[in-house]
Computed example of a mutant assay.
Amino acid sequence: MKSLSPNLAVKDIKESVAYYQNNFGFEIEMLVDSLQEDFNPVVKEEKEYIWALIKKGDVSLMLQEKNSMKEDIGNFFNDISASITLYIEVDDVESLYEKVKENVEILKPVYETWYGQKEFYIKDINGYILGFSSKA
């Protein structure tokens, strides 16, 4: 195995990309429009998108519009949301928390774990649980 890239089913690609860009500094690596003709990493308002690859440092996420995912792999799920928790290590969890706390749904504010980490958990706009961590 070489890498792991979660592919998250989302309601709206543009909205989800903007959420991750604005709150966590992700950058678009690739976008795929609904006609599968345009792979330019620049969002165009007139286009509808079915897939995006976003990246921040060594963390990559694939975002796929829910109906497009069902077409690709079948109707194995009824709803999108937290069936997994994404655990993301960052340099300074407290600074990130201060930056995003007013713009995201906080599930658990910053706390220190028994295993020497500081963490906080959020629910993103599609219902996925993201945990952020750095050394205490």
Rank of each mutant, 00 (worst) to 15 (best):
V32C: 09
G25A: 06
S16F: 10
F39E: 11
S5E: 08
E29C: 00
S34R: 15
M30T: 15
S5Y: 08
N7K: 07
Q21I: 08
N22M: 00
L4D: 07
G25K: 08
E15V: 06
N7G: 02
V17L: 03
Q36E: 05
I28W: 03
F26I: 03
A9R: 13
S5C: 09
E29K: 14
Y20Q: 06
E15D: 10
N23V: 04
A18M: 07
G25P: 06
I13C: 02
P6I: 10
E29P: 00
P6G: 09
F39W: 12
L35Y: 07
S5M: 10
L35I: 00
E15N: 09
L31D: 07
S34Y: 13
N7I: 14
V10N: 00
L8V: 12
M30A: 11
K11Y: 12
V10P: 01
I13L: 03
Y19G: 01
I28A: 01
V32F: 01
L8A: 05
M30N: 10
Q36L: 05
F26V: 06
E37F: 05
E29L: 09
K11W: 08
F26G: 05
M30D: 06
F26T: 06
L35Q: 14
V17C: 03
E29D: 13
D33I: 04
L31C: 12
V10E: 00
F24A: 09
S5N: 10
I13W: 04
I13A: 02
Q21A: 05
L4E: 09
E37Q: 14
L31G: 11
L4T: 14
V32M: 14
Y20S: 05
V10C: 05
S16P: 13
Q21S: 04
L35T: 14
I28D: 08
D33G: 01
G25W: 08
A18T: 15
Y20F: 13
L31H: 10
F39M: 13
E37W: 04
E27K: 14
L4N: 11
N22H: 09
G25Y: 04
Y20A: 07
K14F: 04
N22I: 01
I13P: 01
S34E: 15
K14E: 03
E37R: 11
